[in-house]
Every structure is written in structure tokens, then in C-alpha cells.
């Protein structure tokens, strides 16, 4: 799935729409701190969403991707993951490889969601994309 994501990461909005006649576009939405953005579902290309700021892709997202082993994903990404609080739940952990442009949330051996974005720094990811869900207390 990671290879598929890397191949799609650089596509512009026009490129996605031209490749995916099934694409459905919603303008003026958000993805965490990224807003306003356009959300594009193009199931023939990717089992999740593309998010665009204008023509520029700012996030490739997949919610609860099937048959993705978090350990295999982590092994493929290598060392250097940062751990952040995940919005998926108290026991979930968001692992971020900002320099690789990948983050995923894991809980109980399953991937809650996968994010693929342009490589950046942890500070930039934290300020521009990530939204801290706050403490889980119940």
C-alpha cells in the first residue's frame, strides 16, 4: 500500500481527476488543520481520500485500510518514528515519519488510518497538519 501511496503522492488535482472518471469532489472542507481544502474520492485510484489546496495535493488519506500490518509498515519505514497522541483512541498511537512523509495510527495491531504527505519536519507536521485530540479520560 505504501508503494501505491508513494506513486500517487505527487499527483495534482487535475491529474487525479483526469485519471479517475469516478472521482467525487467536495470543496471547502478540512482535514485536521488543513483547511479549507478539497476532498476527492477516487476509488479506482485509492481506497481513501485525496486532499488538495488548490491544485496541490496536501494529503493522501486512508481510513482503516484493510490487510495492512502495522509492524510491516513500520519495518518498511525504518527507524526515526515520532509518537504522538492519536485521535483514534486512548490506546492508539500516532507514529509519524515526517521526513518520509508518512504517519499512521495503530491500536491493538490494526491500522486506524494512514496519512501520506510531502516530506517535512516534525515541527511543520505538528503545526500545519496535526491536531492534538487532547487527553482521553473515558
Amino acid at each position: 500500500m505504501l508503494d501505491q501511496a508513494y506513486a500517487l503522492r505527487g499527483l495534482s488535482r487535475d491529474e487525479v481527476l483526469s485519471r479517475a472518471p469516478d472521482a467525487v469532489v467536495e470543496d471547502g472542507v478540512r482535514y485536521e488543520r488543513l483547511r479549507p481544502v478539497a476532498r476527492v474520492r477516487a476509488a479506482s485510484l485509492w481506497p481513501g481520500f485525496f486532499y488538495f489546496d488548490g491544485d496541490r495535493q496536501v494529503m493522501l488519506y486512508a481510513g482503516a485500510p484493510e490487510d495492512v500490518d502495522p509492524d510491516a509498515l513500520a519495518a518498511a519505514l525504518g527507524p526515526g518514528a515520532h509518537e504522538l497522541r492519536s485521535r483514534a483512541g486512548k490506546r492508539a498511537v500516532l507514529y509519524v515519519w515526517p521526513e518520509r512523509g508518512v504517519a499512521f495510527s495503530e491500536e491493538d495491531g490494526a491500522v486506524d488510518f494512514l496519512e501520506v504527505f510531502a516530506p517535512t519536519t516534525l515541527a511543520d507536521y505538528s503545526e500545519r497538519i496535526y491536531e492534538d485530540p487532547g487527553q482521553f479520560i473515558r
Partner: peptide, 30 residues
Amino acid sequence: WTDRATKSGTAGAEAPPTSYGDKNASEDLS
């Protein structure tokens, strides 16, 4: 919500009853 962990951001959508419910759809439902 677009899925359990992600808000849709759709204008006009009714938000959860508390900020705590804004974490994910499971917390919203609870």
C-alpha cells in the same frame, strides 16, 4: 464524520454535543 477517526468538515454538519465527542465518531456516539 467521513470515517470513525476523521471529521468531514462539511459546512452545516451538526457537531457533537461536547468537545470531548469531537475526538472521533466513537466518542461522539458515546
